[in-house]
Design a protein around this nucleic acid. Structure first.
Length: 204
DNA sequence: CACTCGATGTTCT
DNA sequence: GAACATCGAGTGG
C-alpha cells in the first residue's frame, strides 16, 4: 500500500483560480513525489505563499522574464523549482494563465509517506524538522531542478486531495506577511497562509 | 528561547 | 559585484 493507490492528481482547473485563492486552497492538499527508483514521498501542505504579477516587488518576475523565472510564465499547474543561496531548492506551483507570471510557494508540509528516506536526506530524526520549510521539504522529497517545468497534474510530482473523509470542521487559516523578503520587497503584503493548528509550519 | 552569522554558487545588473 | 522566497550551528539569556 503506497501513496499512489490513495491519491489522484488535482485537475488543471484547480490552479486556474486567482493565485491567493489557490494558495489557500492548497492547504490540506497532499503533495506527492513518486520519484523513480526511490521510496515515494507524500505530505499534507500546511503553509504557502502567493507571489503576484502586479504590485508585488517580491515576485521573481517583478522585473520581467529571465531564464530563471521563465517557468512562471507557463500554464498553471506547472512546477517552478529554483536554487537559492547556492544550495537550497524551493518548489512553486504556477497559477495564472500562460504569459502571466504568478505562483504559490510551498513552504511546509506534514510528512505522510517516505518516513524511511526523508530522515536520511534531511539528516535528522525529528519529524517536525523534515519538511517545515521550503528548502527542507524539497530536500526531504528529493526535489531539485530536475522537476523544474514538471506538470503537477500528473506523476511523478503532483498534488492530490487528501485520502478519506476530510475534517469535520474547516481548518482555520492564518494570513500573515511572507518570510525572508527584504524590506520594501513586498514584505508587508499579507500573502502567507498556514494552518493555524499545524505543528509542521516553518514559523509562527 | 532569541538572535547572529557563515555556507555556497547561480542569476542578474 | 551584489543579491538571494534558506538553513543550521553557535552564542547568550
Amino acid at each position: 500500500m503506497g501513496p499512489d493507490s490513495a491519491f489522484t492528481p488535482l485537475p488543471r482547473e484547480f490552479y486556474n483560480a486567482p493565485t491567493q485563492e489557490v494558495a489557500k486552497a492548497l492547504l490540506g492538499q497532499v503533495l506527492i513525489h513518486d520519484k523513480p527508483g526511490s521510496q515515494p514521498c507524500a505530505g499534507t501542505i500546511v503553509e504557502t505563499e502567493a507571489y503576484l504579477s502586479e504590485g508585488d516587488p517580491g515576485c521573481h518576475a517583478a522585473r520581467g522574464k529571465t531564464q530563471r523565472n521563465a517557468p512562471m510564465y507557463e500554464r498553471s499547474g506547472t512546477a517552478y523549482v529554483y536554487l537559492i543561496y547556492g544550495m537550497h531548492y524551493c518548489l512553486n506551483v504556477v497559477t495564472a494563465p500562460e504569459g502571466v507570471a504568478e505562483a504559490v510557494l510551498i513552504r511546509a508540509v506534514m510528512p505522510l509517506y517516505g518516513l524511511g528516506v526523508m530522515p536520511q536526506r534531511r539528516k535528522t530524526e525529528s519529524i517536525r524538522q523534515l519538511c517545515s520549510g521550503p528548502a527542507k521539504l524539497c530536500q526531504a522529497f528529493g526535489i531539485d531542478t530536475d522537476q523544474n517545468y514538471a506538470d503537477l497534474t500528473q506523476a511523478p510530482l503532483y498534488i492530490s486531495a487528501p485520502d478519506g473523509p476530510g475534517p469535520a470542521d474547516a481548518p482555520r487559516i492564518v494570513t500573515t506577511t511572507r518570510i525572508g523578503l527584504a524590506a520594501g520587497r513586498g514584505d508587508e503584503l499579507p500573502l502567507r497562509y498556514y494552518l493555524a493548528d499545524s505543528p509542521f509550519v516553518s514559523r509562527r
